[in-house]
């Protein structure tokens, strides 16, 4: 019993202590960069040279290989932020607000890319860059939420106080995620329904599914690398802020 408690404390303190977190995640960074680069090279090769055109959409199906990973990340990053927000509010985890802050700009860029590539795919497929339908409008709302969160982080000098306010805002904004996901089922929309993650299996042939999954993992690993690096920077920034306060205190 006592052994279990000790090992659990050890695991928790390793995760929770920012210095320890830096120590055990730093060696992961370069291997993750390598995996990301390989996935992008192979994914782009498949996307352009080893996948057929679609029988309906023709060559424009290749836009899907950048659109779907960004659309997935726009929501996945927000889920990471919502879980981190719970960590901030419920457990006051020292790394939770660091994770929340580091993820927001990444999520904003992936969401902007999902909208941008979606518009470029929409013009030749639907005949329009934009339509105020459920999926597109709720994704635009997600981008505005991300921008609001980034603005809030910059509005506060006290980052610990900012974390609590932003955590509440993030959790309220999380209601938009199921709206994005199910908008294609709830409302009449130009956007197609899910064709990969379906109870009856994907409706896409393997020749198109393989490059899609390669690019999906390439972008997901890119997010993991950038999130980890941005978390390291945020931990170091807080250390610098602490030192600056100490220096100012010594002068006073």
């Amino acid at each position: 019993m006592s052994i279990d408690t000790k090992s659990r404390q050890g695991w928790f303190s390793r995760i929770a202590h920012p210095g320890q977190f830096m120590a055990w995640t730093q060696p992961l960074l370069w291997p993750l960069v390598g995996i990301t680069a390989v996935l992008f090279v192979v994914g782009l090769y498949y996307a352009f040279f080893n996948s057929p055109e679609d029988y309906q959409m023709g060559e424009t199906v290749r836009i899907m290989y950048v659109h779907v990973p960004n659309a997935w990340l726009s929501q996945f990053v927000y889920v990471i932020m919502a879980v981190s927000a719970l960590g901030t509010l419920v457990w006051r985890h020292p790394l939770a607000d660091v994770s929340m802050k580091a993820a927001a700009p990444l999520g904003a860029v992936f969401t902007a890319l999902a909208l941008y590539t979606g518009a470029l795919w929409g013009r030749p497929t639907w005949g329009t860059f934009w339509e105020w339908d459920g999926r597109m409008t709720s994704t635009l709302v997600l981008l505005l939420i991300y921008l609001g969160i980034i603005a809030l982080w910059r509005a506060f000098d006290d980052q610990l106080r900012a974390a609590r306010v932003i955590a509440v805002f993030t959790l309220v904004g999380a209601v938009n995620i199921p709206i994005i996901k199910f908008s294609v089922d709830w409302w009449s929309t130009l956007h197609q329904p899910a064709s990969v993650f379906r109870p009856d299996g994907p409706t896409i042939p393997p020749s198109i599914l393989i490059p899609l999954f390669l690019m999906f993992f390439a972008f997901t690993f890119l997010f993991l690398v950038l999130h980890l690096k941005a978390m390291h920077t945020e931990i170091r920034r807080r250390k610098a802020m602490g030192l600056e306060r100490r220096a100012a205190g010594a002068l006073a």
Binding site: E59, T60, R62, I63, V66, H67, N70, V109, A112, L113, Y116, T117, L120, W121, R123, P124, L222
Partner: peptide, 13 residues
């Protein structure tokens, strides 16, 4: 449209 989707994504990344 295809080229600009990839070029725009590359610039943003």
């Amino acid at each position: 449209f295809i080229i600009w989707a990839y070029v725009g994504s590359a610039i943003a990344v």
